[in-house]
């Protein structure tokens, strides 16, 4: 076939992409210079929140709608609190009470929200790309609060802020992300962010949950927990969804914990003082031992606190026209 001239692929017209910087749809494609201002503002909001001095007038008169197509108490509450601390009118719409169950399409929902003059729309959806679809149709700024197995950008920002507060930097770190990485939007957003800021990421888990193709994201893939977390600065554990058991991906909780659970014996392989993180909610005794989750090295509670601060920063900046 040496004489076959290889025709190049046809170029298509530009996709109708939602203008990225009015929305926060994902971390992929963001530069360090675009990410860091979110962290700086969030850090100041964390301090103001602690002293009960958050500026209540920042989002006064703005309407924030939390549109959740998937169950979530923690993320929804975090966005709700963030909006309220800045004075926004916050409405929660969840799938159980909305007309989505009555056959209304995502785009009809978008039209309805436009008519309600929503300013900030926080969306969680079980399908990758759903917030992008909405962002093309609504006038509000859209914040992706988790879409399918694609991205969860505010989680990555809050994880980054937590790391920066403890280790003083986000460059040159070795970070291990352990567990169900293949199905994890948290892992994807964290990988994009940590790499954009100059850190190295390893992903650790059995091949059914951590397929070798993840290396395409620029991470190193480990199927051995001890080697995967050796000499790391940060160990991020992911929640193992119960439905992975019985679907042929993992045989049992006890086998998973035996080989991939984070306990004290394994944690000592990481660097002294390495941070232990978890996006929550935890399965104690499945992916993480209680002794580790409650140890001095765990910053899991602080992640929750930084979550509110990061979401305040995101809502604030997007309401001011974005981050261009």
């Amino acid at each position: 076939m040496a004489d076959t001239a290889a025709m190049p692929p046809l170029s298509l017209g530009p996709a109708s992409v939602a203008s990225g910087q009015r929305h926060l749809l994902g971390i992929a494609g963001m530069t360090a210079a675009e990410i860091e201002p979110f962290l700086d503002l969030a850090e100041s909001y964390a301090l103001l929140s602690r002293s009960r001095k958050a500026p209540r007038d920042r989002l006064q008169g703005r309407t924030l709608i939390n549109l959740f197509f998937e169950d979530s108490t923690r993320t929804r509450t975090s966005f709700e609190l963030a909006g309220k601390r800045l004075g926004a009118d916050v409405i929660n719409m969840t799938v159980a009470t909305s007309s989505v169950n009555k056959g209304e399409t995502l785009l009809d929902t978008a039209a309805t929200l436009n008519a309600m003059r929503c300013d900030l729309l926080v969306v969680r959806h079980g399908m990758s790309g759903a917030p992008q679809l909405l962002a093309r149709k609504v006038e509000a700024s859209v914040v992706n609060a988790g879409d399918g197995t694609h991205e969860h950008p505010t989680q990555a920002l809050l994880d980054a802020l937590t790391i920066r507060r403890h280790l003083g930097r986000l460059s040159g770190l070795e970070v291990a992300i352990c567990g169900d990485v293949g199905h994890s939007r948290v892992a994807r957003s964290n990988i994009h962010l940590l790499k954009a800021l100059g850190s190295s990421v390893r992903v650790v888990g059995p091949p059914t949950l951590v397929p070798g193709a993840l290396a395409d994201l620029g991470v190193s893939v480990h199927h051995d927990m001890e080697r995967g977390i050796a000499d790391t600065d940060v160990v991020m554990m992911l929640r193992l969804q119960k439905e992975r058991m019985g679907s042929g991906l993992v045989p049992s909780e006890r086998e998973y914990f035996r080989f991939f659970g984070l306990d004290q014996r394994r944690l000592v392989l990481a660097r002294p003082g390495a941070l232990v993180m978890h996006p929550g909610p935890m399965n104690r005794g499945v992916e993480i031992a209680s002794a580790v989750a409650d140890s001095d090295q765990s910053v899991i509670q602080e992640q929750v606190e930084m979550g509110v601060a990061v979401r305040m920063a995101v809502l604030d900046r997007l309401s001011r026209g974005g981050y261009a």
Partner: peptide
């Protein structure tokens, strides 16, 4: 492949 992995599809 890489693209589907990145887009979480």
């Amino acid at each position: 492949g890489a693209l589907a992995t990145r887009f979480g599809l």
